[in-house]
Design a binder for these strands. Structure first.
Lengths: 197, 197
DNA sequence: GATCTGATGTGAGAGGTTCTTACATCGGAG
DNA sequence: CTCCGATGTAAGAACCTCTCACATCAGATC
């Protein structure tokens, strides 16, 4: 499409972003290098610094895309009428999100990005939290909504990270991981519900 | 004590390990470098490779120490007679472990170590799981013990990692994080207990 | 006691990285 | 049509990991 380029690329920022996600998928966030991304985009190794201040900024940009995708996933959820079912759906969805693209998940949460240096990332993390609150809102006392949403997020996040890093490898076999997430979420939700009454 | 050394250090491996944990504490796992560790131990930059095959191996060794410490923490727990109290104690302890030395926790779980390359690490992760199983054993059906322990670990781990990475920063203020962990664990335990009956 | 040897440390260096700085190019506003 | 700001390049400083040939020395062996 934009094969023959002259001195200027035309869409380098996006090309670099694509190269970044591809590279991270192949080699992990640690294996990612600005040089290699530049190489793949066909530009010199200093060109990326016109578009990103930092190596970290490139990863942060990729992570931001990931956070948007995660947000999207939670923005329209099936209208489960039961609290427990909804909690379970959220936890399982989160786990699937992590498993279907581990590199993306790693970039978002385990690439060592200093979130305080990237407010856009911070904001998008808050959006995720807000979506969870919206999802649980109909079932909970507003006074505890924030905490409960954070708890569910924590639970789902814990399952996802432990699994992805292989900490449960010799404990729960791969096929049953989803049901573990579901069971954990259901237990939690049941406990929450029983305390409310 | 071992101030004046000649050509040979005498205890380089340990000195390097100490330098590693110190360095990680200062600069994070990503900021750690073999060269700098060598410098601090007062040896040449190639000396560490006599004791560790890899940069990763140094981090793995430090992580292993961390896993031992975590194991220790769970090996003797107060004899709470109530299931929910014990679950809460575990979650809160885990969170404290993470917060009292974030660098150690980061090394253990977010430094990008390939666990499959370090069976000692893998084994120690299994030990942690086993300790959790032992702690919950008295209260649970043996058939579901493994899964339940993994669920609790996940929950605690999720809280710890989200907090340490600042994802809950604008959601739950720092002082209330422990009570969030406790509340989450209690809810989960209550749900588990109610399903057992 | 002298020697030999394996473990441990050194120096140099190949090849990689991030990021900066001075300069080159070019599209579009005036 | 000009010129200027945005975007590219080339070169290089300062790191990094890891390897290889060589130096040193403590302790086992004769």
């Amino acid at each position: 499409m934009e094969s023959k380029r002259g001195y200027h690329h035309g869409d380098l920022r996006n090309a670099l972003l694509a190269a970044t996600t591809e590279l991270v998928r192949e080699r992990g966030a640690r294996g990612f290098s600005v040089s290699e991304a530049a190489r793949r985009a066909g530009v010199s190794s200093s060109a990326p610094y016109r578009h990103f201040s930092d190596r970290e900024a490139m990863l942060a940009a990729a992570a931001l895309v990931g956070f948007h995708a995660l947000g999207e996933r939670f923005s329209s959820l099936p209208d489960e009428r039961a609290f427990e079912a909804r909690a379970a759906w959220i936890a399982v969805s989160y786990l699937r999100f992590a498993q279907e693209d581990p590199a993306r998940f790693e970039t978002m949460f385990a690439s060592g990005i200093d979130k305080s240096r990237h407010e856009d990332l911070m904001r998008q993390a808050v959006v995720v939290q807000a979506l969870l609150e919206a999802a649980l809102g109909p079932f909970l006392d507003p006074a505890e909504l924030v905490d409960r949403a954070a708890e569910l997020w924590s639970l789902a996040h814990g399952v996802a990270t432990l699994v992805l890093q292989g900490n449960l490898q010799h404990v729960v076999d791969a096929g049953r991981v989803e049901s573990l997430a579901e069971s954990a979420a259901r237990s939690w939700a049941a406990g929450v519900a029983s305390a409310q009454r």
